[in-house]
Computed example of a mutant assay.
Amino acid sequence: MAKKKKNEAEIKAVTVNELKKEMLSLPHAELVEICLRLAKFKKENKELLSYLLFDASYPETYLDQVKAYIDAEFENLGTTHAYLAKKTIRKILRITNKHIRFTQSKTAEIELLLHFSKRLRRAGDLLKSSVQLGNLYFQQLRKIEKAIDAQHEDLQYDYRRELELLAKV
């Protein structure tokens, strides 16, 4: 592998604060064009923009859609090949985490991870026979625990009860 020369110019991204200042100075039409160009550039950008424009106003409906996706993927989960099942479960978790990032809500994180963990627990034999899936399961329970700690006390109680049920393996 060739080393970089010291005099080569590197393109560095500016800070979010600098981006914000520049965006505030742009005319509305130009800002819309930039957003559309950004949406065309990468699929995840388009998905985030879709969420912000169409789904952010209805968080319960959005969570129900993501839960329905999780359910559908677990229904199609083939348990004959452990390798493919693990790969599919990791894919479901990756997409679930993407939707959690979109919402930027601890409540949504708890709801979706609890739902994912419940569905994973129903996989029963697969969860018990695979050390990797067992580790993944307990890692999600720890993430849920951390998110619950950030909630109001009233909500903590309800979520902790659900978490305790999931922790009993």
Score class of each variant (00 low, 15 high):
Ala2Phe: 07
Lys4Pro: 11
Glu8Leu: 10
Ala9Phe: 09
Lys12Phe: 09
Leu19Thr: 10
Lys21Glu: 09
Leu31Asn: 12
Val32Leu: 13
Ile34Leu: 13
Cys35Asp: 08
Arg37Gly: 15
Lys46Asp: 04
Glu47Ser: 08
Leu49Glu: 02
Ser50Trp: 06
Tyr51Pro: 00
Leu52Thr: 15
Ser57Trp: 02
Pro59Gln: 01
Glu60Met: 12
Gln65Leu: 04
Gln65Thr: 09
Ala72Ser: 14
Glu73Phe: 00
Phe74Gly: 12
Asn76Glu: 11
Asn76Met: 14
Leu77Ala: 08
Thr79Glu: 09
Thr80Met: 11
His81Arg: 15
Tyr83Thr: 12
Ala85Glu: 07
Lys87Val: 13
Ile92Asn: 07
Leu93Ile: 05
Arg94Asn: 08
Arg94Trp: 05
Ile95Leu: 06
Asn97Ser: 09
His99Leu: 02
His99Glu: 03
Ile100Arg: 01
Arg101Met: 06
Phe102Trp: 09
Ala108His: 07
Glu109Arg: 00
Ile110Lys: 02
Leu113Trp: 01
Leu113Asp: 02
Leu113Cys: 05
Leu114Gly: 01
Phe116Asp: 00
Arg121Val: 02
Leu126Ser: 04
Leu127Arg: 03
Lys128Arg: 15
Ser129Glu: 07
Ser130Pro: 04
Gln132Ile: 10
Gln132Asp: 14
Leu136Ala: 14
Tyr137Met: 04
Phe138Tyr: 14
Lys146Ile: 02
Ile148Tyr: 03
Ala150Cys: 09
Ala150Gln: 10
His152Leu: 08
His152Tyr: 12
Gln156Leu: 12
Glu164Thr: 10
Leu166Phe: 03
Ala167Tyr: 00
